[in-house]
Amino acid sequence: MAILFSSVLLILSVSLVISAPPNSLTGLVPSINDNGVLLVPSDNSYYLRIDVDGTGREETVEQIAPEQLQVKGSYGQPFPGSKYLLVTYEAGPNGYVAKYSLSEIHNQVQQLPPAALKTAAG
């Protein structure tokens, strides 16, 4: 669901950006800060962050010339078996480049001695 929402939001935002006159994105891209979604427009760019259920996406889109966008971002998602996928990407006039890494998630539980817990409790 979060992936579908972020994809739809991205497509709508990019279509608005492409149809906009230079330096006028603030009125076309809405500001959003709700339920793990943050969208912050400025004159010629916007910043998007989506954090839902351990899955996250962060992206900056900038209009570098009329009808030319520069996109930089990352997408991360946990998988069963303590795996985490991180994709970083960049797209612009020179094409699209994506890199990915799959890593282990290490859950480290720090244990405190009983005396420290008693002291912290007062």
Rank of each mutant, 00 (worst) to 15 (best):
A2M: 05
S6T: 12
S6I: 01
L9C: 10
S13D: 04
S13R: 01
V14M: 07
S15W: 11
V17T: 14
I18L: 15
I18H: 10
P21N: 11
P22W: 03
S24C: 11
T26G: 02
T26W: 09
G27W: 10
V29C: 10
V29W: 08
V29F: 07
V29Y: 09
S31C: 02
I32Q: 01
N33Q: 13
D34R: 11
D34G: 00
N35Y: 01
G36I: 06
V37P: 00
P41C: 08
S42N: 11
S42Y: 00
N44V: 00
N44K: 09
S45L: 06
S45T: 08
Y46F: 15
Y47I: 14
L48W: 12
I50M: 10
D51L: 13
V52C: 03
V52L: 07
V52G: 01
V52I: 12
G54Q: 05
G54K: 05
G56I: 12
R57T: 04
E58M: 09
Q63N: 09
Q63P: 00
I64K: 07
P66Y: 03
E67Y: 04
E67S: 09
L69E: 03
V71G: 01
G73P: 01
S74G: 11
S74T: 03
P78M: 08
F79Q: 04
S82D: 15
S82Y: 11
K83M: 06
L85K: 12
L85W: 03
L85Y: 06
L86M: 09
L86D: 06
L86Y: 01
A91E: 12
G92W: 03
P93R: 08
P93V: 07
G95M: 04
Y96F: 14
A98R: 12
K99F: 10
Y100K: 10
S101R: 14
S103F: 01
E104M: 12
I105Q: 13
I105L: 14
I105E: 12
N107F: 15
Q108T: 15
Q110L: 15
Q111Y: 07
A116Y: 13
A116V: 15
T119V: 14
T119L: 15
A121F: 06
A121H: 05
A121E: 11
